[in-house]
Amino acid sequence: MTTTTEPVAAEVWRDALAFQAPFLIEKLTRDHVVESAEEAEALFREVKRYLVLAAADHTVAWAMYSLRIDQVWHQFILFTRQYIDYCLENFGRYIQHAPSTAPPVENLAPPTRSTFDQFADAYERLFGEPLPDLWFDERGVTLDRRLVNTRAGTLSLRDSDDDMVELLGEDGRPLFAVEQVGRNALDFISRTGTFFVRELPGELLDVQKIALTSTLVEHKLLDLAS
């Protein structure tokens, strides 16, 4: 059988889920990847759950949907010895997180890639609770959050017919639009590589600054900075 049900999972993967990594928590906190040890622990718990989910169900290529959790996974892997031991002891194999140029594995036909809904359903079945907020990067946006725009300088603005201003990609296709009150903020975002939410210029209220940027994070147009 390739799929594990929740009651079985709780027992089978108990050690993998209970694993503690104080060295990682300390590094995440010290390097300001997270704001507190509690946040680091919470993110690391989700890394472990993600790895367990991937190991428990081989029928799907499980996608990683949170940059924050992905960052913690990266940091865990940097503790090479501990990460290898963790993988081998709990999953019997090394789970890689390779760069984009990684060659395909021979004789391993890729299964269907998960959708977010599939992932959320599988997570709830396996762990008996819905995906926590940590899986929704946009819910971590505050006025003091630093954001990254990796496409700064390649984006442009255009006024639309319905009194909105559109954000256009490099190919001229609309990626996003906001009503005119957000024009100055969107113009700033389109040109700026890194900024704090509170720095947005223009007439937006604080709650609107958060609304604008969290929506852009949700729709993969901005990233949370570590």
Partner: peptide
């Protein structure tokens, strides 16, 4: 959101950062 009117692309939630899968 936040009393701000916006237009967004649909189904972006399915875009992910990376993926892993395992066989035996």
């Amino acid at each position: 959101r936040g009393e701000l009117r916006m237009m967004v692309r649909s189904h972006v939630r399915d875009v992910c950062t990376c993926e892993i899968y395992c066989d035996g």
